[in-house]
Design a binder for these strands. Structure first.
Lengths: 158, 158
DNA sequence: GCCTATTAGTTGACGCTTCAAATCATTTAT
DNA sequence: ATAAATGATTTGAAGCGTCAACTAATAGGC
């Protein structure tokens, strides 16, 4: 009755699970060791660093970090305690909170990015030809859309 | 100085992260709701169910579950409390532990698998043509090997 | 304009994962 | 043989993520 997976599908499903489970663990040690950051924390700082004014609404930041608002809120609290991020009220919507990178936070990613990118390059991209990068990018797109159907981009700040 | 990622690489890296972060969350709700299991717990039971004698050494099971021994040990303790798994001493090596599926554990996956597979099929495979499944399988192989270099298969039971 | 529904975000408790330490068995070196 | 090193696993504490409950503000309906 159930539509079982065929051998190739089964293999791909196991592979996707393995990659999902193990990828962070492959990249994180360098970050932890050299910068004392988790991959998620780095990602949050990186998203802020690329935003206009180095600031984003919490909801937008949550979206760009693939995270729940709750998880983000906890992490931002920690990042705030380190002095890398500040929260402020959004002038146009009293419910909203703007998270901004501090100068110290900016300095932190500037210092951290090169080592991290080098490590990502070695682990993820060195074993792939540029053609394969393109193909993977295309093939993974429908998967991502299916996993995360309302991946609409939220308007920035307000 | 650092070899930065080009736009396509950057896009793929963000996509891989998003998939790694969001995939479990797409599949898990059905499992939690219909069977009270996390994806990881299901996976552990499934690996046992397919092993000879429905039994595996903890180390082998950890490998097949992409997990640390510590994480597995905690989970097996919980699964034991539910009556789905038992631990026993390995006759050939006094340090090792064999985890085995109980009849109740077997009944649990038999009952759970169809719904879970259907959900995986809908979310992961329906949006992919069979040709794309093959391609993804091939393209992700080098990635997995790079992420998890010593992915040697451990000899089964002893 | 008011009442309700919705939206943005925070909080605390609980559960799971990680990490380091500990236990006990086996293997290796001498 | 015996000590030291390695290997398999467990354990408890600490940290992180999830979930449900809560606050506060805006939007909608009439």
């Amino acid at each position: 009755m159930p539509r079982w997976l065929n051998p190739t599908e089964r293999e791909l499903w196991l592979k996707l699970n393995a990659i999902a489970t193990l990828m962070a663990g492959a990249v994180e040690p360098q970050l932890k060791r050299d910068a004392g950051l988790s991959l998620f924390e780095y990602h949050v700082l990186a998203m802020l660093s690329e935003a206009p004014d180095r600031s984003l609404l919490m909801s937008n930041l949550a979206f760009h970090s693939n995270s729940s608002l709750s998880r983000l809120s906890h992490v931002v609290t920690r990042l705030e305690k380190q002095g890398w991020v500040t929260r402020s009220a959004c002038p146009s919507d009293g419910r909203a909170t703007i998270a901004s990178l501090t100068p110290e936070g900016w300095a932190k990613i500037v210092a951290t990015a090169p080592g991290h990118v080098e490590s990502v390059r070695e682990i993820i991209f060195d074993p792939l030809a540029s053609e394969q990068v393109e193909q993977l990018n295309d093939l993974l797109q429908p998967l991502l859309e299916s996993i995360d159907p309302d991946r609409r981009v939220i308007s920035n700040q307000e």
